[in-house]
């Protein structure tokens, strides 16, 4: 069995004694096939009993042990040490707590903010069957209907996407990817009856339209759930349900309209159409400076060659 010395650089922080987080280094002999969690357990049992982290099922289904390994959020129990070796295996493997959540101690973070957001956004099915009639009859759900939400029900709330999310990093009040995914899962469950209310909540400020679609949540989901597809679907749903008053929705509408009118985005009036007259007032100074550099988008956009074809498509689709 392949074996080698590996260094682990682990972030430590005990609020009772430490002013700020620091790093501890451990060098241990590791066999190929060993996971990061087994390394953490080994360190705790043999070298440093105070090292603090969560772990429970050790099989990738409970979501307890998410940490950042070399900067990326992962489940410690399903991450192989060998896959994290860099610099020819000589660089230490960096292990840190998840981002965007308060650290309680060492690698252990508080995930209450995630649960609180689920609560605020009704992350549950509101069933069509009244309480007193429950248990007597199944809803009929086709396999295709189930398939729509199947992947979303894989979510184990490990917090990795929350930790990776770009918007979370700059706005703690942002709704967050797991909550949007849960909203998608509920709103596309054919047994649910409260989609309007849920969507009304998630389209409020700091909500659905604040996602920058950076795709970090999808890229680093520990269960490979296509979270962005869910977010896309919710935005479509906002239009289907006529919830088009938000800046995000008006922004999207502008793309739709411009493509029909000229085939090009009319960037010069995009702020006005997204944010309204007062909302875009603050953008004037920048616009003036850009004008001096000749960077202002043209007032009148050239129509693309054969714009008639695009309009024809629009007409046909509207039928």
């Amino acid at each position: 069995m392949e074996r080698r010395e590996v260094s682990f650089r682990i972030q430590r922080y005990n609020p009772q004694v430490d002013q700020t987080p620091f790093y501890d280094n451990f060098k241990i002999a590791v066999e190929k096939g060993i996971t990061i969690l087994r390394v953490l357990n080994h360190i705790k049992e043999q070298l440093e009993p105070r090292l603090t982290f969560r772990a429970f099922c050790q099989a990738g289904i409970c979501g307890s042990c998410a940490v950042r390994v070399n900067g990326i959020s992962k489940l410690a129990c399903t991450t192989q040490v060998w896959d994290e070796l860099t610099g020819g295996g000589d660089d230490p493997i960096l292990i840190e707590p998840l981002s965007n959540l308060p650290v309680i101690r060492d690698l252990l973070v508080d995930i209450d903010p995630v649960i609180e957001k689920l609560r605020q956004n009704q992350g549950w099915v509101v069933p069509s069957i009244p309480e007193e009639k429950m248990g007597f009859k199944e809803h009929a759900v086709s396999d295709d209907e189930f398939e729509v939400i199947n992947a979303a029900t894989d979510c184990i709330l490990c917090g990795s996407c929350y930790s990776e999310c770009s918007m979370m990093g700059v706005n703690p009040r942002y709704i967050s990817p797991p909550v949007l995914l849960k909203t998608f899962r509920m709103n596309n469950d054919t047994r649910d009856t409260d989609g309007d209310e849920r969507l009304r909540r998630v389209t409020a400020d700091h909500g659905l339209w604040d996602c920058t679609h950076c795709y970090r949540c999808v890229e680093h989901c520990t269960k490979n759930i296509p979270i962005m597809d869910g977010i896309h679907r919710l935005r479509e749903e906002a239009f289907e349900r006529g919830m088009t008053g938000s800046e995000g929705a008006r922004h999207a509408q502008a793309f739709f309209d411009d493509t029909r009118n000229t085939g090009r985005l009319r960037e010069v009036t995009l702020p006005l159409r997204t944010k309204g007259v007062t909302g875009s007032f603050g953008m004037l100074p920048l616009a003036l400076k850009m004008a001096l550099k000749g960077r202002t988008p043209p007032l009148f956009v050239h129509r693309i060659a054969g714009i008639e074809r695009i309009r024809e498509i629009y007409r046909k689709l509207e039928k």
Binding site: H213, H232, R235, E236, A238, F239, A249, H251, A252, Q253, A254, F255, F256, D258, T259, G263, R264, L265, I304, A305, G306, R309, I310, L317
Partner: peptide, 16 residues
């Protein structure tokens, strides 16, 4: 020249 705006990951919200 005949290509149209891709929709900048916005068009599909209005209409996939």
């Amino acid at each position: 020249e005949k290509g149209a705006c891709c929709g900048g990951s916005n068009l599909d919200y209005v209409s996939p």
